[in-house]
Design a protein around this nucleic acid. Structure first.
Lengths: 330, 330
DNA sequence: GACTAAAATAACAACGTTGTTATTCATGAG
DNA sequence: CTCATGAATAACAACGTTGTTATTTTAGTC
């Protein structure tokens, strides 16, 4: 049997409402009594029943995060940071890898105060069952199927990759490749490709000297394979990679091929995460810094949660270049 | 404002207790009324408030899973299966990647009916704060620091690897390598090494022909690197790998090195997951099949949850060989 | 058409909290 | 010594459910 405030009340010989006040550090109870009760509670290993709490307060101080998996390093890192940021505001974070529709239903039943969706598809896309409008949903980079329905935080991916092209061009590179996942289904990846092509155009690169390589996926393995293929043909002087994992894999492949980064090949990676500094060669990154990303997600979520007149807003995060040792002037 | 049974009651012009019964398909309400209420509820997008429900029923029908990350394929797969199995028994699963102590506290506050811990360290190891004894905890393969404190499901890793050695020996292999993570901190990995050595001894292999390679980690990358190193020295005729990810990486490395599996090298992998069949070469596996694993975890959890006189039991799962195309007779 | 049994529905208590309102208990002023 | 004042504590209602108990409605009997 779990210990409740009533148990504590009985043992401390006070009423249970006094216990409640004492544990919430209310000024209405005598410091002495308060101390006695708090100590007793700690000793009994009392944990407040969140169900009861949320029932009366109408909020659970809990948010749910829906994600496909934690296999991508950058996503894993981001979720960790979001957890931290929300914990600072005393919210707890729970994860689910269920299909979005089921996860949302579950979170709704659990009275979560907010939901963050990392899926590529909008929650109602599958079964066409609309998400209840009374629970704030923040979707991260989902293609807005039916108008701006949810609040959204997203990265300016196109700008980010474009920035990378400009950056490399300024360093003198005239032959650049973009390596990324190229499946039609995923708009986010498409956006990066578009950024690359626009950037190349703006910098006056010929289409022959702006190579797009389809990695067919976003894992280390895909990056490695792409790096391999890169080595088979005439090399570019610089490569831009679409995700952290791709970068790590590709770096390994080209190093294995006997190339030195940045002497033989410059490298810029999307996914502005600190892990890029820990690779064999610290790699220059573009994209919103993960800390900033997490902070904006947390802030936006808190914003739409507090204003019941849901401020369905879209935040587009600016990219920032994080220069490291993977690029050189030529 | 969320819709409650009282809202439905008002609209249907019945008492809220009737609504409750109708929604729970009680025989005490007229079929006609029942139907009307159920339709109305669906139309309003009603979702039962789990907080209220668990408050009165003293159980949340929810279990929490604590894990370090979902980066390992086999773990990811296992969690997915557990989710399915528990869903069949109408339990919901929530995940947390918080440090075990915090996650347990959170789950306790949320009144979860049970907890599954996938961490390498016991929950109380960090801050020495004991887990409340009133919430059933099932730990997966944790080294039992202070006696058999929690229920536990674990794999007979030692036997599994030993089986692999015997299997390969029967096929005629006399020079076998084991590739795995070798950090002292992780007992699970140590167990596999021990299995390898014992197996080698039993099969009469000389210590020179039973190689142990430390991969230094359990990811694709570590496997790849280990494969690379393998190629540098005199090759064994067969390799046993400690995890799915190691196998995938190592397979790639040796294929890159111009070897053919199984003609030039036989391969057996720990982690009995179906994903092994989808690699370039379908790889023979040892270890408890993931389905069986998930089922036992679900069953054991349900068992210790139902018997309040907690049946703190330990289940050790037998390994099974899943033969595929990665081994040949010599 | 009054009476009973059964069926249907309504009313109520409880779960563990919090916030509000009511009560008790000192303390000090007159 | 009585009374007002304020501090400390107790009692109570409410949150959204479920299960139990009480009440109403319906149908069947004579």
């Amino acid at each position: 049997m779990t210990v409740t405030i009533k148990d504590i009340a009985r043992l401390a010989d006070v009423s249970y409402s006094t216990v409640s006040k004492a544990l919430n550090d209310s000024p209405l109870v005598k410091p002495e009594t308060k101390k006695r009760i708090i100590e007793l509670a700690a000793q009994l290993g009392y944990q407040p029943n969140l169900a009861a709490k949320s029932l009366v307060s109408r909020r659970s101080m809990t948010v749910g995060v829906i994600l496909p998996s934690l296999e991508r390093v950058a996503l894993s890192a981001l979720v960790g940071r979001i957890n931290d940021k929300l914990a600072e505001r005393s919210y707890d974070v729970l994860l689910s890898t269920l299909p979005p529709a089921s996860a949302v239903r579950l979170f709704h039943r659990l009275q979560m105060d907010g939901i963050v969706v990392f899926e590529d598809i909008a929650p109602e896309a599958k079964h066409n069952e609309p998400v209840p409008s009374d629970i704030p949903v923040l979707s991260i980079g989902v293609s807005q199927v039916n108008g701006a329905k949810y609040a959204m935080v997203d990265a300016k991916r196109k700008e980010a990759i474009k920035d990378a092209v400009h950056y490399l061009t300024r360093l003198g590179h005239r032959r650049i490749a973009y390596v990324g996942d190229h499946r039609d289904s995923d708009d986010k990846q498409q956006e990066k490709v578009a950024g690359f092509l626009e950037g190349a155009f703006e910098c006056g690169l010929s289409s022959a000297s702006a190579l797009v390589l389809d990695s067919g996926g976003n894992t280390w393995k895909h990056g490695f394979d792409a790096g391999r293929r890169l080595l088979l043909n005439e090399l570019p002087t610089a490569v831009i990679t679409g995700t952290f994992d791709l970068t790590a894999g590709l770096l390994r492949a080209v190093q294995d091929g006997g190339l030195h980064v940045p002497d033989d090949l410059s490298l810029v990676s999307y996914d502005n995460v600190p892990q890029l500094a820990e690779l064999d060669v610290p790699v220059t990154a573009v994209g919103p810094p993960v800390d900033l990303y997490a902070e904006h997600i947390a802030d936006t979520l808190l914003a739409i949660m507090s204003s019941d007149e849901a401020a369905r807003r879209t935040v587009l995060l600016e990219s920032r270049i994080e220069e490291r040792d993977s690029c050189r002037k030529i």
